[in-house]
Structures are given as structure tokens and as C-alpha cells.
């Protein structure tokens, strides 16, 4: 079973945000991000879950050594007993995923609904997503249903990142080389966030 993310399919219904808050490991707090991609020009929204990197940058920059991976590669929220709430992980994650929760003075993030996926169930967000932007299932089924293929290799400048969660891209795409320069507007304008 694998997680597939296709932001281009998102319809901004927020079902994933509501469902995410139901997860027991962060009960009451949604960990998924739902963003307006370019609010000034388009109603397009995009969900972002933790990509569960093979060698997570968040864990490497953590001064408290508080971020651990399970044996099956899931990157967990910072250990409550170790996290000192410095936000290094929040700032260093190339996907912008971890959240600093001030009330707990602790970093929390998407843990792939470990209470569910460790038992073979789907993550909450994927169970409710009506458009297939968030999908969890066997890779062969996704390959049969979609034209796009899952890419789990990313490049941010000279940083290469391999992930367990796949981003859907046209067949033949081996790596997604994230481009920043093309998306910097001449007149910067703060963007709004849904959740």
C-alpha cells in the first residue's frame, strides 16, 4: 500500500482537513495543509501531507534528536519527551510540512495516520477525498486507473530528496526538479491559507 498525492485534482472541499483532525495521534488538530496555490489568479487549492522522506531533513536538523522513523519508513511527530519546540524542522522541511504547536510547545505533523495505517487501514484524508487528490492503495491499481505515474524523487537546488509518498506526474518523469524562480512574482503578495 502506498500514498499518492495529486494536487492538480484537489477541489478544495476541506473534507481531508476535517477528517485529519479525527486521527487519534493528534486528536482534534488537523495536520494536513490545504493551500490556495495562487489566490490572486485562481481558485486552485492543494493538499500537502508529509512526504515521509527516506532521510528526513526535519530529523537531521533537530537539535533534540526528537524526530524518528518507524521501521516501515513513517516519519513521526517529534517525541514529546524530547522536543524543545525550536521549529528547526518547520523551517528546514523542503515540503513545508511540520507544524509548531505553541500550546504543546512541540512539533506535530502528519504521521500517515499511524494508528490506522499500521493496522492496514487507509489514512483518514484518503478515505474522504472525493477527487482522488489523496489516494492510498496498491501501486498496481493506481497505475491502472491513472495516466500519471508516482514520482518519489525530488530536487531542491542541489538537495536531492527521496520520499515514500509519491507525487503524480506524467509517465516518464524520473525526478521533480522544483523550480522556484519561475514562480516568483514581480510584485510579491502574501498568500492566504485555508487551513
Amino acid at each position: 500500500m502506498e500514498f499518492f498525492l495529486d494536487p492538480s485534482r484537489c477541489i478544495g472541499c476541506q473534507a481531508c482537513v476535517r477528517a485529519c483532525a479525527e486521527c487519534d495521534t493528534h486528536a482534534g488538530r488537523p495536520m494536513i495543509h490545504l493551500e490556495y496555490v495562487d489566490r490572486a489568479l485562481s481558485p486552485q487549492t492543494a493538499p500537502v501531507v508529509c512526504m515521509h522522506c527516506e532521510d528526513p531533513t526535519c530529523a537531521q536538523v533537530c537539535p533534540a534528536d526528537a524526530i524518528k522513523q518507524t521501521e516501515d519508513g513513517v516519519v513521526m511527530s517529534a517525541l514529546a519527551e524530547r522536543c524543545i519546540g525550536c521549529s528547526n524542522c518547520v523551517l528546514a522541511c523542503p515540503f513545508g510540512v511540520p507544524r509548531y504547536v505553541p500550546e504543546r510547545d512541540q512539533m506535530m505533523k502528519c504521521d500517515l495516520c499511524y494508528d490506522r495505517t499500521s493496522l492496514g487501514k487507509m489514512p483518514m484524508c484518503a478515505t474522504v477525498c472525493p477527487s482522488g487528490a489523496l489516494t492510498y492503495g496498491p501501486p498496481e491499481v493506481i497505475e491502472r486507473l491513472r495516466r500519471e505515474r508516482s514520482v518519489r524523487s525530488f530536487r531542491f537546488g542541489a538537495q536531492e530528496v527521496r520520499t515514500h509518498v509519491g507525487l503524480m506526474a506524467p509517465a516518464g518523469t524520473a525526478e521533480i526538479d522544483v523550480d522556484v524562480a519561475s514562480f516568483i512574482a514581480a510584485e510579491p503578495e502574501p498568500m492566504r491559507k485555508i487551513a
Binding site: D6, H33, A46, G96, V97, M168, P170
Partner: peptide
């Protein structure tokens, strides 16, 4: 971090 999340979607949207 917010722009990093948007950039992921923008890059993927351009690809597809």
C-alpha cells in the same frame, strides 16, 4: 514553508 507547499503544487500542475 507556505510557499514551499504552493511550489510543490505549482510545479506538479505545470508538469501535468
Amino acid at each position: 514553508p507556505g510557499c514551499r507547499r504552493r511550489l510543490l503544487a505549482l510545479n506538479q500542475g505545470r508538469l501535468v
